[in-house]
Design a protein around this nucleic acid. Structure first.
Lengths: 157, 157
DNA sequence: AATATTGTCGATCAAATTAATAGACTATTG
DNA sequence: CAATAGTCTATTAATTTGATCGACAATATT
């Protein structure tokens, strides 16, 4: 199946970084690019498009940079993916947000693949529409903590 | 996000057709192509590759054609998608069947996107690995029946 | 006002993937 | 042997995705 595009992967990484940093100190494209290992010019494009959608905000000139424009616990990963890659559904005809009938399809009611993929979409949306940027960052923190404790245990043994 | 390839969509359509037909009467590529509206030469390729994987069987010459090589209730849609499109996961690093670390990833344990996409993969696999060709055909039949009853009701009113 | 800094924006190029087609060949039946 | 139908490799076409270029515009500091 098709994978999350690099574009979306980069966007998410950048947004996690903005989340961790907080809205008080703007992040430079250049810094994000280095720290998160994202091609700079590509990241420019991505952040710009996210700004147009109102997800981030920016200032030019010295002390400029990017910040989240929305609280990290109000932005779901599902909404971000939809902004960039489009619908979550594996098929346009199984999409809730952007339904589109296949050209050759005689009757969508009797398309088995669509019925199935609709289930997949629902399960996917159930996860991604209920997970925010803040949630993801929390999960990563938890994983870090767990790893640290594991290491301590190693020393102890 | 992740679209099923045409290749897989065509494969599934053809396999539903073989399921409905049963193993006693082989289906011709040409017929399948017309009935299911699939480019003939493309379908050839697809069926051939499915044959190599042991999913269908074929005979050449007069009275030849394709049949399912495995009972329709023993073949999951998940396994078919994996054969053709590859892993169900939205990211290689979230795949169970074909895991692959991203080149730039410093530590997969702390990748938020991966943690999330692993959940999505699990939910997807839960559905697709528990739905067989026979199940899909049954669902379509049920939808047909329901639609008929709906029409009858319309006449009644 | 001048300068350095940093985001903006449209265009374009390159690479990869996916979709589709071509054509010569082989097996099977009658 | 002739008609039918699948086999197989290669190639082409189309689309999508990833990435880069370069000129421009706003902001802060001196």
């Amino acid at each position: 199946m098709r994978t999350l595009s690099k574009r979306t992967q980069y966007a998410l990484r950048a947004l996690y970084a903005l989340t961790r940093r907080g809205s008080d100190q703007p992040a430079l494209i250049g810094d994000l690019s280095k720290e998160e290992d994202i091609p700079k010019k590509f990241l420019e494009q991505i952040l710009l498009s996210l700004k147009m959608k109102g997800l981030v905000d920016s200032r030019r000139g010295r002390y400029g940079g990017y910040v989240l424009a929305v609280p990290a616990d109000k932005v779901t990963v599902g909404s971000i993916i939809r902004m960039i890659d489009g619908p979550l559904a594996p098929l346009p005809c199984a999409s809730e947000s952007n339904f589109r009938k296949c050209d050759e399809c005689p009757d969508i009611r009797f398309c088995g693949t669509r019925i199935l993929m609709r289930q997949v979409r629902d399960a996917t949306a159930d996860i991604l529409d209920h997970t925010t940027l803040a949630d993801v960052c929390k999960k990563v923190d938890a994983a870090r903590l767990e790893a640290e404790q594991g290491e301590e245990l190693m020393y102890y043994i």
